[in-house]
Amino acid sequence: MTAFRDALKLGAAGAAAAACIYYPQPLAARLEQAFDTTPFWGAMPMTLAFIVLTSGPLLFGRLITVARAMRIVIVTEVLLAALFAAQAFANSPGLWFALRGLQVLLLPLLIPAVITGASNLRDSDNRGRDLAFYTAGTIVGGVAGRLLAVASIALAHWQLGSLTIAALLLASVALLRRPPVVTDELAPAGTGNAPAPATPRSWMDPVTLSYPGLALAFAVLTTILTCLPFEVGYERGGTLMLAVVYGGYAVGIVTSLGAPAITRVSRGLPRATLAAGALFTLGLAGVIHGAFAALAIGVVLMCAGMVFQQATQIVMLNAHFARSQSGTVNALFVAAVFAGGTLGSSAMVWLYGALGWTVVLIVCVLLAVIAGACMTIAARSQARAASA
Score class of each variant (00 low, 15 high):
M1Q: 12
A7F: 01
L8K: 15
L10E: 00
A29M: 12
P39W: 02
S55G: 15
L59G: 10
L63F: 10
R68P: 00
A69I: 00
R71Q: 15
I74G: 07
V75P: 02
T76M: 12
T76G: 10
A82Y: 07
A85D: 09
A88D: 08
A88I: 05
A90I: 04
S92P: 00
G94H: 08
F97S: 07
R100P: 05
L105G: 08
L105D: 11
L107H: 02
L109Q: 02
A113W: 03
R122W: 00
T135H: 06
V140T: 05
G142M: 02
A144K: 01
A144G: 04
R146S: 03
A151S: 12
Q159K: 06
L169H: 03
L170A: 10
S172I: 03
D184M: 12
E185L: 14
E185W: 07
P188C: 07
N193Q: 09
A194T: 14
A194S: 14
P200D: 12
L209R: 09
F218Q: 03
V220L: 00
I224T: 03
G233F: 09
G237M: 13
M241W: 04
Y249I: 07
I253E: 03
T255D: 00
V265R: 15
A276N: 01
G277H: 03
A285R: 08
I288L: 09
V299N: 06
V300C: 11
G305K: 00
V307F: 13
A311F: 03
T312M: 14
N318A: 13
A322R: 06
L332F: 06
F333R: 01
F338G: 00
G340K: 02
S346A: 11
V349D: 02
G353I: 02
A354M: 13
V360C: 03
V360L: 08
V365H: 10
V365C: 12
L366E: 07
A379R: 00
R380G: 11
S381G: 15
S381E: 11
R384C: 11
A388K: 15
